[in-house]
């Protein structure tokens, strides 16, 4: 009698666990599907944004905009120098400073400072 009762209990326990596992799997599968859906949706959104960005960053458009709005031009070769073409910094004495011809535009200010 006790044996029957015990095995019945075990059976019930096993049945419940099996059911739990099964429903658990279903639940997880659902979650997985929902996540997959969200990923797909996000991917679609990304695709749209990427295409839009690609369209807006067309070189022709950027060239026109940078020319019209920022007055940008291709860099001339005279503006490109390798690093070692730039002379090393020279330490100036006070006497040397006077020899330097300042930019005429800012010269008056320098004079004021000298006085």
């Amino acid at each position: 009698m006790r044996l029957i009762l015990l095995s019945a209990l075990i059976l019930v326990g096993l049945g419940t666990t099996l059911y739990q596992v099964k429903t658990g799997i279903d639940e997880r599968q659902d979650r997985l599907h929902r996540l997959e859906l969200r990923i797909a949706d996000t991917k679609r959104d990304i695709a749209v944004l990427e295409a839009e960005w690609a369209y807006l960053s067309r070189p022709e458009r950027v060239m026109t905009l940078s020319g019209d709005l920022l007055q940008m031009k291709p860099i001339g070769q005279d503006r490109i120098l390798p690093l070692d073409a730039i002379p090393m910094r020279i330490e100036f004495g006070q006497a040397d400073l006077k020899k330097i011809v300042f930019n005429p535009a800012i010269q008056p200010k320098k004079k004021d400072q000298a006085e």
Partner: peptide, 20 residues
């Protein structure tokens, strides 16, 4: 209800897989 919902989301997931 849960089962019905599950089958619906499975269907949707399938269509999502088709897009990816």
């Amino acid at each position: 209800v849960g089962l019905a919902d599950a089958s619906a989301s499975t269907r949707l997931a399938k269509s999502a897989a088709a897009i990816t």
